[in-house]
Amino acid sequence: MSARDVRAVTLFVLIACGLAWLVALPLWLGDGLASPLFIVIATAMMATPSVAALVVVFVVERPSHRARALGLWPMAPAGRLIGYLALGLVVPIVLAVAGLLVGALLGVYPADFTGFSGFAQTLDEQLSAAGLPAVPIPIGVMVALQFVNIVVAAFLNLIPAFGEELGWRGWLLPKLLPLGTVPALLVSGLIWGLWHAPLVLLGYNYAGAPGWLALTMMCGMCVVVGGVLGWLRLRSESVWPAALAHGSLNAAVGSTMIMFVAADSTVDTTQATLLGWSGWIVPLVLIAVLLATGQFRPARRAGDGGSGPAVSSGVPVQTAPR
């Protein structure tokens, strides 16, 4: 990386993280995660990486193709983009469920994959609290409907998720590629994890865990999941599949955990789900396979003879992952 790129990355990180702490400050001065403003503040915080990327691109770097530098353009060929958007929707859901299966096999996730007893218990409690009678629908049908809800929520989550992805995968990851594909994925994932500190240190995602452990686990999760999101970004040469995958991930992790947990159980998210170490095994295997098969290279455009280095977002991309 050139000295100019280092300065740009440093400024980006300072703006993104500084704004995140500023936005989250009312939670620290008030009721923390119990604040009635939590959802509003957390959503606003997700926009801070985009603000940082826009400042760096439009004020500092000012490249000739700014939309390309952010991964917003080109949105072609359409067939390839649609294919990676479909992967962005489905892959996080598959990884979330696979992580629960592995966690159950390793004894760290208390699962009920057949009776859905925990999900049924949660539904009963919610209906009882609302003063409503039990729903006369088989629990299996309710589980199927929950998957439909995850898909719908993935698209609803796309807007706030885009606020993060424009910064993390849209601009930052390609900017770090001169370090090599693997170092770029590691560094961008670590920065993404540390950016979550204002919420994680309040107990978000890892309730009951000491702050140092919660933040360490969050960084680990972001490195692992960031590798999958990074693959979608680099392979498609677009930020949109990664943004949809981020929205799908946010919808799938909590929902699947509730759907398949056993009744009267407590889930330790430092160990189970995609947030915990057991949930990282399957995505790590996927990333290893993708790296071994060269799938982090941009897909060739139609008519591309393959000569010369591929270019993504105006940054030369390694012709082989390393």
Rank of each mutant, 00 (worst) to 15 (best):
R169I: 06
V200W: 06
S312M: 14
G247P: 05
L215C: 07
R297Q: 10
L244D: 03
P241H: 07
V253T: 11
E125N: 13
A320S: 14
L194I: 15
S248N: 10
G118A: 05
V285A: 11
G71Q: 00
A184F: 11
I258M: 13
M218H: 10
S2C: 07
T181C: 03
V97N: 00
N157Q: 09
V141P: 04
G30S: 14
E164L: 06
T10Y: 08
P183V: 14
P138T: 08
S35Q: 12
L173C: 02
D5S: 15
A8R: 14
I82T: 13
L156D: 00
F260T: 07
G103N: 10
M75V: 15
L54Y: 01
V282I: 12
R4L: 09
G180K: 07
A242L: 10
V151I: 15
V97H: 06
A288S: 13
N250Y: 09
L123W: 14
E61T: 14
V223H: 03
H196L: 02
S265W: 00
G30K: 15
M45D: 11
G115H: 01
L72W: 13
T181M: 12
G308T: 03
P298V: 13
Q318F: 09
A86R: 08
V225R: 08
R80I: 04
I258Y: 11
R300K: 12
L22R: 03
W277H: 02
A76K: 15
D31Y: 08
G208M: 06
A153V: 11
L14I: 08
V97F: 15
S50N: 01
T269D: 05
L132R: 15
G99Y: 07
T216M: 15
G167Q: 08
A144D: 09
L201P: 00
E237D: 15
S238I: 11
W21P: 00
A130D: 15
G103F: 03
Y109S: 00
A47D: 00
G314Y: 01
A242N: 07
G88R: 02
V90R: 06
G211T: 08
F116K: 02
W280E: 05
R7Y: 04
V253C: 08
W277N: 00
Q318S: 12
L249V: 06
A262Q: 12
V141S: 05
L87G: 08
P26I: 00
H65E: 15
V135D: 05
E61V: 15
A207I: 11
W168R: 04
D264W: 12
A243M: 07
S117G: 04
A129I: 01
G247S: 02
P138Y: 08
W231S: 06
G230P: 02
V60Y: 12
P183Y: 01
K175E: 05
L190C: 09
L190G: 05
G227Y: 04
L123D: 12
S312K: 04
R322G: 11
L179Y: 12
L284W: 07
P210C: 06
A242G: 13
R169P: 01
A245P: 01
D304Q: 04
G193M: 03
M218L: 14
G247L: 12
L81R: 05
A24D: 01
F162A: 11
R322Q: 13
A320V: 13
L158W: 06
V228Q: 03
S313D: 14
I139D: 01
T273I: 05
G230R: 09
P283I: 09
L105K: 01
G303T: 07
P160Y: 03
S278R: 08
